[in-house]
Design a protein around this nucleic acid. Structure first.
Lengths: 238, 238
DNA sequence: TAAATAGTGTCTGTAAGACAGTATACT
DNA sequence: AGTATACTGTCTTACAGACACTATTTA
């Protein structure tokens, strides 16, 4: 690749990071993955918990999404999660090292079939219940990012099939309903729930699944793991 | 302010920009504001139309939102529009000058009470019908950004009061319905529309408004210009 | 009075909520 | 048989769509 023929851009450039809020349902609670920043380092917020993330690597990352997938893979080993951009936050004050902007993503992953991995700069990696995580003083403005991620997740769960991405396949309708209830923090009527999911047509049957007790349930798989189904109830297109 | 006590960050930093897709309803069409890039400059995409935007000024802009508001003010003189972040796009290929990331916003403004202003680097500023703008070859990946902005706008219009921000106050229900129809590209039933808007409770009466012909209509003002109303039709919270 | 636009009333259709009932597994 | 869980049926409620109707202005 030839050197750029454009004039040099000499003004100061912001710091650019990517952060990822990874969610799962574990022990009947919505949990988020946090990373503890090294305590003895020269970096800001030593010893504080933070969302996994870090600086863009302009050599390694072809895009923002690539960078987010890399963070996710490095921390959990998961390669095909539900991953969506939440938004970006930038300003002069959020990082003591200078004007910085972060591109924040959120991901949904099943708690099983996943191993936590500590990275170079991270002493510890752990799941925290969302409410507990929000009460901590997270590094940078990560408390604000997490709050926005939880709000977005809860809002989308009201009209999409997102919680299916929190479960391993095959999943049952009762287990899916449980995931909805955990995320939303309220009970849902069983009959209405089942009608809605089955009418949605985004799942296919995958054989009976027996629990430890009671009647076995039908297992289901998603027809399309690349996107969530929408339950439209607005102005109905004609 | 003391100099930073943190070690120097020496790795290469991406270019960081903010772009804004500004929409209005004019001549029975949804229109977007585009800026023509200087034709004789040494910059990329000379002579191409682009969304208004540019590099973050780390001295002048306290945050991404501030930067977007500044772009909007510089091009249109509008100071209190509806402004919302759309997302961010970043990668090695989108700007020939190097790895770059843009933070894209979209804004809704009334076509009246606004004057277009050319800036330092912009030869021309003009409104284009969205369909025509999408057919042009815009600079950078702005075609993709515009497509995403239009998709987001149309999606949100289905369940929010967003089109009210495209009108000057006081506006009438027929004019609001017209704005909905222009954005969505389809007709809406009058009776259902009026029930929905009036039941929403986000407007207050502001006296009769006479058109040039026919019966005068009630004028309305938004109760809260800081956010749009939502028409929820999902899982109803109990 | 005619034309144009604003606004209302009534019926129907769809999907969610309430809740009671039936079905199938294990011990 | 008893218990635990999975699943279904029926009634009600909320609200959007269809569409015909009435109301108020100007020419």
């Amino acid at each position: 690749m030839p050197a750029s023929t454009f004039p040099a851009l000499t003004f100061p450039r912001p710091l650019v990071t990517v952060d990822v809020a990874m969610f799962t349902v574990l022990d009947d609670a919505l949990q988020v993955l946090l990373v503890k920043r090294a305590a003895d380092s020269n970096e800001p917020f030593p010893g504080k918990w933070a969302l996994p993330g870090g600086f863009i690597n302009t050599n390694e990352d072809a895009s923002l999404l690539d960078c987010a997938l890399r963070k996710l893979r490095e921390k959990t080993g998961v390669v095909t999660p539900y991953l969506e951009q939440l938004g970006s936050w930038g300003g002069a004050q959020r990082d003591p090292r200078g004007w910085s902007a972060t591109h924040c993503f959120y991901a949904l992953i099943p708690a099983q079939a996943m191993q936590l991995r500590s990275g170079a700069n991270a002493a510890e990696v752990a799941w925290f219940e969302v409410d507990a995580a929000l009460r901590k003083r997270l590094a940078f403005d990560h408390g604000e990012l997490l709050e926005a991620a939880v709000a977005r997740l809860r809002a989308k769960v009201e009209y999409t099939s997102l919680p299916a991405f929190l479960l391993e396949e095959p999943f049952t309708l009762p287990s899916l309903q449980h995931a909805y209830e955990v995320v939303l923090g309220r009970d849902i009527d069983k009959s209405a729930f089942r009608k809605r999911m089955l009418d949605g047509g985004f799942m296919e049957e995958a054989g009976m699944v027996a629990g430890s007790l009671g009647r076995p349930a039908m297992g289901y798989r998603l027809r399309d793991r690349s996107q969530a189904a929408l339950f439209p109830r607005t102005f109905n297109a004609r």
